[in-house]
Design a protein around this nucleic acid. Structure first.
Lengths: 203, 203
DNA sequence: GTCTATACTGAGATAGAC
DNA sequence: GTCTATCTCAGTATAGAC
């Protein structure tokens, strides 16, 4: 079948989003897509490569949009650092836009971050973009010691991954992705702007 | 064997912390502990129950310490709300203390949150404590609409889980758990104190 | 009560026929 | 390109030795 590959990709995107990557077996995918098990390995080679192709198709455009926005902000700012809020907005708003088109897939992106599986995929598809943003963020909060800055980036990644996975444990307008991301930006911006933690004892 | 059950628990704690729960097979555990495969099912019944017992032993004391601290803060404050920083410190500092004794296990706690596996275990061991803290937090930031407050709690959980999993992608004094948790408290406190997100368009 | 040996089901991966 | 058959290894289950 000519469309075998596409059918596999589409079905995998749906099931990965619903059940998580680890929680979805290749056999579930082939049953739902009505193809043979070996077809996955013929077209993709492995479950990990299937995921890689999926990320490539769905996440790369999001990252391009992120970088476009960042470049525009840098151009506007000239030599001056860009504001924290603007940087974070440039990073998170494209996610919201993607989520409106394909809510399930954004959950896949969250899951590959928080499941911690397949770090090679995260590195390949998200690192180049993330590092550009981290560099600009650094300029936006020069008051922080380097180590505390990096920890805050780490905190941000955790909050982001958890938020993209969805399933907040409370009733929420789950379709309002822009609202969710803007709340995240508010929260994280304040966190980044906070003065450095003083040295001292914890009681 | 002298103490098969203890050997299994200790080995499981180590491997779960190093490789994650999903990434560790029972066969790895029994090989390293030098016991029989069925011994796990005799003593625990399943992989999930083994994890449950592990959490029970290691996390419950942490949660008791958290509640003790919270109670003391409530007593000091009388009728007035407790400060955000104090609440978060009461929650996170016991984690740091536990990490100093057993660094790997704190990573296990982070993983069960972020892997999203076995939500029943999270619910059973962490919910009662978490809800007490959420209730106090609510009083500390009365300026927030309920929905935004709950989202911020969600962001906090993500940052926490990611931080406890460890593996920051930069050189850090990985033994300084108190410093790490105090930085987390600084970051999250500022996030909670931030004014509510205004309604409006995202560009 | 404890533990061993063994087997069952379902996962991902692969070789080779067509 | 596609499919059958098979491999290894996962978690689980059980019968029976001590």
């Amino acid at each position: 079948m000519i469309d075998t590959k596409e059918k596999i990709l589409e079905t995998a995107a749906q099931l990965f989003g619903e059940q998580g990557v680890a929680g979805t077996s290749l056999r579930q995918i082939i049953a739902k897509a009505d193809v043979n098990l070996a077809a996955i390995h013929y077209h993709f080679g492995s479950k990990e490569s299937l995921l890689d192709e999926l990320i490539h198709r769905k996440a790369d455009p999001v990252n391009r949009e992120r970088l476009d926005r960042l470049c525009r902000l840098e151009a506007e700012a000239g030599d001056k650092p860009v504001a924290v809020e603007a940087i974070l907005e440039a990073f998170f708003v494209p996610t919201a836009a993607a989520a409106e088109q394909n809510p399930l897939f954004v959950r896949v992106m969250g899951r590959i971050h928080s499941e911690g599986l397949m770090p090679a995929i995260v590195q390949k598809h998200f690192y180049p973009t993330a590092q550009r943003f981290v560099a600009q963020l650094r300029r936006a909060v020069p008051h922080l010691p380097e180590e505390e800055f990096l920890w805050r980036v780490h905190f941000m990644m955790g909050a982001m991954a958890h938020t993209m996975c969805g399933t907040p444990l409370f009733p929420a307008d789950s379709a309002d992705y822009h609202g969710r991301m803007r709340k995240l930006v508010t929260f994280l911006s304040a966190g980044f702007r906070a003065p450095a933690t003083a040295n001292g004892e914890t009681k």
